[in-house]
Every structure is written in structure tokens, then in C-alpha cells.
Design a protein around this nucleic acid. Structure first.
Length: 644
DNA sequence: ATAGGGTTAG
């Protein structure tokens, strides 16, 4: 124990003010490594403290473990987890001053720190100076690269270690490399590592197998995942979680839920990883009912207090169209962190609640949570989705001027969208020309969307060319251009674009809409005749469209691409998938409930107008999620303000 | 009692 009397008097108050200071050296360091690395490092770098710690004649005594190396190693992990390069350098120079060497585990830790902070060169320099590099040293270097996703650097170090130095890798080495491969989708390198693991007979290591499951699951090799699991002697909860996640990520989310049921039958209690995998499955299945079930599970397992889980749930509800549920979850999170605030902000943004997003942002700043580049992406997106041009411009300026965040591509595409929405096409184009980054397809796509809405064919053509050269196989761009021509009555140009598409072997992604009913998702495609309730749905649709026609509404046939007879056009357009889904929704949901529909593509103009009118005539709220955002239709108006 | 490793939210 450190006795109070032996502590230097000026140091004591600051020590005592730290939460969890137990006057026990080990506990103290450990506690702060986990709880408050930032503050811990700050305190340490105040000279007096580290001098006291490192001096052999220190008045502070650590009777049980006087080895400063151990304490320093805690400290250095703390530096790593508070991701501050200045602390890292401070500790480094302190180590050199005090010990005049950096080797052994102090060296290992510093190497790991530098690599984790993305300072590969500093790490390499330090590493090369270390005279006694053992397996752990190499693993520290490799794991640091791994955390940053530097697959090549991992493998490079691996080769040097194995073939130049003759040090045999162990499972830790291979796990680090595999997880780097998984995070970057480097499947060939991952397979190579897998081969190595086989050669060394290491596939009995559960953690190694798990990292391989993750690799194959993330890269879409579900069959490889299944083969691995068959050969695995015994898995643990992480293996189960990864199986659920692998299915959720590869279009077989229902099987993922099946694995969850098997897991429960095997008597294994779900943890945060399980629940997060299930949330992913819910998102893919689009089942609100299932999400509520997982919500219940979260509560039952006491995982609601876990910030990651709560944020995942909040985000899921927003994506499923239940923004009110998201808000409820958010309000129950105590001390929401940056990610939780941003998730809520993103929910408001995608639903077009710009004012709420702004208020939320102000609230976040007020309580002292620092926004980052993701926060601003969603804030700007919220402004653009709600037409808050002036506000958006202001936030864009504040972002770099006040928060020191340099705008990224996402921010630029939001700004282009924002300017384009208010018809400032030239300003938007100027912004693209001025931006210091190379504009990507999202940026050009935002301008293209504005050209479509404002019918600026000249600029649209130019932008389309850019998009064609950036993404030659993205059929959406050809379709948009063709639509633009059709809307302007330029049928010949429209058919040329379609011919070009055909020439390139591109096919139009067929539109379809989804709606949940009775624990199941009902899918509708254009003119779909496969649904069992077909007759009723078409009858309902005709009835509603009849009511709309009576009210004097004429179908916006310009949204149909083909130059066909008016009557045929009207017939085709009335069978669009979102209309079928709305008709179905009117039939099966209670009058008080919103009709929630998901569409794989962007909603078409006619369906948008129709949805507005149905919301008015049938007095129903209709929520449609298209590939870009949510549209809330109520009393004849849409939350998007007719710009999307 | 100390260093390197598997799944994790915006």
C-alpha cells in the first residue's frame, strides 16, 4: 500500500481527486487504464508525478511491485487507448530519459502504441533500434498494424520475422493478421494466413478459428464459414455470434436467427455480441416484430445499459421507420456518447426532420460532447433533406472553423445536394470545381440529381459523362439520364441512352417494394401477379386511384420511360410496386397505424404524388423508405418537400 | 500480479 504520508504533498490532492484511487498501486493504474486513460496520461505527464514514480529513491513506495516497468506498461497501454500522439511521444522521451533504453516489454508497448496511432514510421524506427526482439515484440508490431488495417505491413513484418529472423509465429501472430484481412476484405491474404495456420496445426485455437469465421463471413464466403465450423472441435460464444453475423451479412439472416435459437437451446446466454449480430439480422430482414423481440431480449439480459447495444437498437428502429422508438431508446441512454448522439442525429436526418436534428446537435454541444466528421455528415445531410440551405452552409463553415474538421467527400456531397436543392446549380458546380479532393460519384450524383429535378439537360449531360467514366457499370446513371430526356420529351436521346446501356450489357434493376405483415415480409414488383391476395389488392388499388381521379388528379406519365400510348402509360404506372404495397397496407393494417414500406430504388414521381393523395383521401400516414431517405406522407404532403 | 490475440454501435 502507498501510505498517504509517503506521498509527496503536492501530488496527493490530484491523486485523490481521481475517481477510483484506491491507494493501491496496481489497482490504481489498472483502473485508470480502463476508465479514464486521457486523464491518467495527463496526470502522468505532469513531471513531478513521473519523476516520483521512476526515481529509485522515490518517496512513493510500491512495496508489492516496485518494478516501474510494470507500471509503465500500464501507462503505455493507457496512452494507446486514449489515442494521443503527444502523450505517446512524451512517454517515449520519459522512458529514454529514465532508463536510457527502450527494449523488452516497454519497447513492445511503445511500438504497439505508435502503430495503433497510425505512426508506422515511428514504430518501425523504434522497433529497429530494439536489440532484443522476441515473439512478443513482433506480435506487438503486427497487432498495431492490424488495428490500423495495414494488411501489407502485417504481412511484411510477418515475412521478416519468419524468414529473416527465423522466429516462428504463434496463434497470436496469425490472429492479428487475419483480423486485418477481415477488416479490409483482403481475402487472398486471409486465405494465405489460413493455409499457414493449417500447416502449423493451429486450428485448435478457438480465437484463431473465430477470426477466420469473421474473415470469410465478411468476405461473403458462407460455405467456407460452414466448413470451418464443422471442423472446429468446440466453439465459444464468440463463434456463435459470428455465425449469426455471417448469415445476417450474406442474405441469409433468417438462418442467422436459426443459429440464435440453436444457441439458446444449447443453454448459452446471449451477450452484447449476440445481440448486435441479431440487430444486424433484423435490419436485413426488415422485420419490426423481430426487432421488438430483440429489444425485449436486450432488456431481459440487462444489456440495455451497454452503450453499443442501445445505439445499435436506436439505429435499427430509425432504419425500420420507427423514429419515435429510436427517440425513446435515446432518451433512456444515460450520458449518451458521441456515437449515440450521432446515431439519433442520423435518424432525424434520414427521416427529414431537419429542425430536430439541429436542436439535437445544439444539445449535444451544450452538454460537452464533441462532434466529429460523422456527426457533421449527418447534420449536413439533415439540412439538405429538409431544405435548410442557410443553416447547412453555416454548419459547413463552423465544422472547419470552430471544430477543426476538414471537409471530406461526404460533406461535399451533402453541400452539393443542399445547393442543388435550392436550384443553385452553378454554385454547386463551382463548389465541386473548388474542392481540394477528387470528387467521387456521390458528389457528382448529387449534382446530377439536382439537374434532373430542375430539368437542366445541358449540365446533366456533362455530369452524366463524369459518372459514366467513374462507374461505367452503374445502371442507375444511364436510367437517370434517360429519364431526364424522357421527361423533356426527347425520346430519341432517351432511347440512345438505353441502347448504350444495352450495348454495355447493363440491365435495369427491377423496382420492388416490401411491407411487413403477419411476421413476414410481402414483396411486390411492377405488375406483380404472384401475391395470394392479388385480386383484393388490385381492386383496392383501382378503388383508391378512382377516388383520386375523381378529385381531379391526372397521372404524371412523364415518369414512364417508354413512348407509348397515354392509356397504356397510365396503366403501367398504376401498377408500380410501391402502389401495390400501399394498397396491400391499406387492406391489412389498422387505420391508426402508419403504413411502412421499403423500396429498393428511388421512389418515382408519380408514386410520390399518389402517396401524398392517398394519405389525404384515406387519412393515413404512409412512410416509404427508398434507396436514399424516408418519405413521410400525411394529409397530402411529404416530409421531403418534393425534392429527393 | 505485468506485454501480443477473436465479435461491437453513428
Amino acid at each position: 500500500m502507498i501510505t498517504v504520508a509517503s506521498c509527496s504533498s503536492s501530488l496527493l490532492p490530484s491523486l485523490q481527486s481521481l475517481p477510483g484511487f484506491l491507494f493501491k498501486s496496481r489497482t490504481f493504474f489498472y483502473f485508470h487504464q480502463i476508465q479514464n486513460p486521457q486523464r491518467f496520461c495527463k496526470l502522468f505527464t505532469q513531471k513531478r508525478f513521473h519523476n516520483a514514480l521512476l526515481s529509485p529513491r522515490s518517496s512513493v513506495q510500491f512495496p508489492s511491485h516496485p518494478n516501474p516497468d510494470i507500471l509503465l506498461s500500464y501507462l503505455i497501454s493507457a496512452v494507446g487507448s486514449c489515442s494521443s500522439i503527444s502523450y505517446c511521444r512524451a512517454i517515449h522521451s520519459c522512458v529514454i530519459k529514465s532508463f536510457n533504453y527502450t527494449d523488452g516489454f516497454i519497447g513492445d508497448q511503445l511500438v504497439s502504441c505508435y502503430t495503433r496511432l497510425g505512426r508506422a514510421d515511428d514504430a518501425r524506427n523504434l522497433f529497429d533500434e530494439m536489440p532484443n526482439k522476441d515473439l512478443v515484440s513482433w506480435n506487438s508490431l503486427i497487432s498495431g498494424f492490424s488495428r490500423r488495417g495495414y494488411v501489407d505491413k502485417c504481412l511484411d513484418a510477418f515475412f521478416r520475422m519468419k524468414f529473416e529472423m527465423g522466429i516462428e509465429p504463434n496463434e497470436v501472430t496469425l490472429i492479428s493478421i487475419t483480423s486485418a484481412c477481415a477488416s479490409r476484405g483482403a481475402i487472398d491474404e486471409g486465405k494465405y494466413t489460413h493455409g499457414f495456420a493449417l500447416k502449423l496445426g493451429m486450428l485448435w485455437e478457438v480465437k484463431l478459428v473465430n477470426s477466420l469465421i469473421n474473415l470469410y463471413g465478411k468476405s461473403g464466403y458462407l460455405d467456407a464459414v460452414c466448413r470451418l465450423v464443422e471442423t472446429m472441435p468446440v466453439g465459444n460464444i464468440v463463434s456463435w455470434n459470428l455465425m449469426i453475423a455471417s448469415h445476417a451479412q450474406n442474405g441469409t439472416a433468417a438462418d442467422g436467427v436459426g443459429y440464435f435459437n440453436l444457441m439458446r437451446r444449447a443453454g448459452i446466454n446471449p451477450d452484447d455480441g449476440t445481440v448486435l449480430s441479431l440487430l444486424e439480422a433484423c435490419e436485413n430482414l426488415g422485420l419490426q416484430k423481430l426487432a421488438e423481440g430483440v429489444h425485449g431480449l436486450i432488456t431481459k439480459c440487462g444489456l440495455y445499459a451497454n452503450a453499443t447495444v442501445a445505439t445499435g437498437l436506436l439505429d435499427l428502429y430509425a432504419k425500420l421507420g420507427r423514429l419515435n422508438y429510436s427517440l425513446k431508446v435515446f432518451e433512456e441512454v444515460n450520458n449518451p456518447d458521441k456515437v449515440a448522439w450521432t446515431a439519433m442525429l442520423a435518424g432525424y436526418a434520414v427521416h427529414g426532420n431537419g429542425r430536430e436534428a439541429m436542436e439535437l446537435f445544439e444539445g449535444m454541444v451544450k452538454v460537452g460532447v464533441e462532434p466529429d466528421h460523422v456527426t457533421f455528415t449527418h447534420l449536413l445531410s439533415a439540412c439538405s433533406h429538409s431544405g435548410l440551405v442557410k443553416e447547412g452552409k453555416n454548419y459547413f463553415d463552423i465544422m472547419s472553423q470552430v471544430y477543426g474538421i476538414e471537409p471530406r467527400l461526404d460533406h461535399y456531397s451533402c453541400m452539393v445536394d443542399l445547393l442543388g436543392r435550392s436550384g443553385l446549380l452553378n454554385d454547386a458546380y463551382e463548389l465541386i470545381k473548388r474542392m481540394p479532393l477528387k470528387p467521387n460519384s456521390a458528389v457528382w450524383g448529387a449534382l446530377f440529381g439536382a439537374c434532373r429535378v430542375y430539368g437542366n439537360i445541358e449540365l446533366g449531360k456533362e455530369v452524366a459523362e463524369r459518372l459514366f467514366s467513374l462507374d461505367p457499370s452503374d445502371s442507375r446513371n444511364y436510367i437517370m439520364l434517360s429519364n431526364m430526356y424522357s421527361a423533356a420529351g426527347l425520346w430519341r436521346d432517351a432511347s440512345k441512352v438505353r441502347a448504350l446501356m444495352k450495348e454495355k450489357g447493363l440491365i435495369r434493376n427491377p423496382g420492388c417494394s416490401f411491407i411487413e405483415h403477419g411476421n413476414k415480409i410481402h414483396r411486390f414488383a411492377v405488375g406483380d401477379r404472384s401475391h395470394p391476395e392479388l385480386e383484393k389488392i388490385y381492386t383496392k388499388l383501382e378503388e383508391v386511384i378512382g377516388k383520386i381521379r375523381e378529385a381531379g388528379f391526372v397521372s404524371k406519365t412523364e415518369f414512364i420511360l417508354h413512348d407509348v400510348e397515354q392509356a397504356v402509360k397510365e396503366d403501367m404506372i398504376s401498377k408500380h410496386s410501391e402502389k401495390l404495397a400501399i394498397a396491400f397496407g391499406l387492406l391489412v393494417t389498422n387505420a391508426g397505424m402508419p403504413i411502412i414500406i421499403t423500396k429498393n430504388l428511388r421512389i418515382c414521381g408519380d408514386c410520390h404524388s399518389t402517396a401524398k393523395l392517398i394519405s389525404l383521401i384515406e387519412k393515413r400516414t404512409i412512410i416509404i423508405r427508398d434507396s436514399k431517405r424516408f418519405h413521410h406522407f400525411a394529409a397530402g404532403i411529404c416530409s421531403c418537400g418534393d425534392y429527393w
